[in-house]
C-alpha cells in the first residue's frame, strides 16, 4: 500500500483525529543512537511544538516525518511512523510523494535563486498543477501574509527580500502545494522579533487548514502558538555520546503549568542544566 492510495477525508476531520503517529521510533546516524523509543500521536489541525535542549533529537525526529533524513546516507530509522494509516518507511512508500503531502519550512530561510513568482510556482509545476498559476501564487502569498509587500515585484529574486519576508515566502511556497502537514524547523530562529510575531500569527491562521509541527528553542513561542507540546531531553549514553528521548507530551498549558516530570518542570521554569 502506498501513501497515495489513502486519500484523506476532509469531512471527518475532528480536532482529535490523529494524522501522524509514531511507534517505538529509534533514529541512528551510523553507530550513533540519536533518538530513542518515541511514541506519540499528532492531532490534525493543531499546532504541536517540540521543545527541549540542544541535541535532544527534536529536529532529527521532525526531519523523519517527511523523510528528509534520507539525504544523509548514514541515517537509519527503526520503528514505525504512520501517516494517514500508512507506514512512511515502508519500502513501497515514495519519499517524493511523502514530501508533497508533508511540507517543510526550514530554520534558515532558503528561497530558491529564482523570482518570487517562480519560488511559489516551482513546487506547483513539478507536482503537475494545471490550474491558474497566477491565482495560485496570489492566493499562497496572501495566506502567507506577504502579498501586499511583494505584489508589485513578483519578478524580483526571492533573495532580494528581507529575512522575515524570505521566511514567509518559504511558508507560501510550502502551502502552495497543499500539503496536509507543515513541518517547521525553528522557523523564527533567524528572524527579528517583529517578523517572528508575524510568522506566529500566521501559524494561528494556517492551522485552520493544515496540521503544523514546529520545533522551537523558544519556550514563550511554544506557549503562544502550540496546542500540544512535547518535551524532549538528552541523556548521556553508556559508552559516550548522548541520545534524545521524549519526556512528556501533553496539552501546552499542562506542560507549562502542571508538568508531570521533574525535568520538564526544570526546563520550562528555566532551571535547566
Amino acid at each position: 500500500m502506498t501513501v497515495s492510495n489513502t486519500q484523506p477525508n476532509p469531512s471527518s476531520a475532528a480536532t482529535s483525529e490523529v494524522v501522524i503517529s509514531t511507534e517505538k521510533v529509534n533514529i541512528f546516524y551510523g553507530a550513533f543512537h540519536a533518538v530513542r523509543d518515541v511514541y506519540m500521536d499528532i492531532a490534525r489541525n493543531q499546532v504541536t511544538a517540540f521543545i527541549g535542549p540542544s541535541g535532544c533529537g527534536k529536529s532529527t525526529l521532525l526531519r523523519c516525518f517527511n523523510r528528509l533524513n534520507d539525504l544523509i546516507p548514514s541515517a537509519r530509522v527503526d520503528g514505525r511512523i504512520m501517516f494517514e494509516g500508512t507506514d512512511l518507511y515502508n519500502k513501497q512508500t515514495d519519499p517524493v510523494e511523502v514530501r508533497r503531502r508533508i511540507g517543510m519550512v526550514f530554520q534558515k530561510p532558503n528561497p530558491f535563486p529564482k523570482s518570487i513568482y517562480d519560488n511559489i510556482a516551482f513546487g506547483a509545476r513539478i507536482n503537475g498543477f494545471k490550474g491558474n498559476m497566477d491565482e495560485l501564487v496570489e492566493r499562497s502569498l496572501k495566506r502567507a501574509a506577504l502579498w501586499d509587500e511583494v505584489k508589485d515585484k513578483l519578478k524580483q529574486s526571492g533573495l532580494s527580500l528581507s529575512g522575515g519576508q524570505q521566511q514567509r515566502l518559504c511558508i507560501a511556497r510550502a502551502i502552495a502545494i497543499q500539503p496536509e502537514v507543515i513541518l517547521m524547523d525553528e522557523p523564527c530562529s533567524a528572524l527579528d522579533p517583529i517578523s517572528t510575531l508575524r510568522v506566529e500569527d500566521l501559524m494561528h491562521e494556517l492551522k485552520q487548514q493544515f496540521t503544523i509541527i514546529i520545533v522551537t528553542h523558544n519556550m514563550q513561542q511554544a506557549s503562544r502558538v502550540a496546542d500540544m507540546t512535547a518535551f524532549f531531553n538528552a541523556e548521556a549514553a553508556e559508552g559516550g555520546g548522548r541520545f534524545g528521548y521524549l519526556v512528556e507530551y501533553d496539552r501546552t498549558q499542562n506542560i507549562f503549568n502542571a508538568p508531570q516530570q521533574k525535568s520538564t518542570q526544570d526546563y520550562v521554569s528555566g532551571r535547566f542544566g
Binding site: S4, Q7, D94, V96, E97, R100, A124, I126, N127, G128, F129, K130, G131, L136, R139, I177, Q178
Partner: peptide, 21 residues
C-alpha cells in the same frame, strides 16, 4: 484549492511514475 488536489491526485500516479523513471 480543491482543483489542485483533484487534478494532482488523478494525474499524480502516472506523472509521478514518469518523474521517478
Amino acid at each position: 484549492m480543491s482543483s489542485f488536489t483533484n487534478e494532482s491526485s488523478s494525474g499524480s500516479n502516472g506523472s509521478l511514475a514518469i518523474a521517478r523513471l
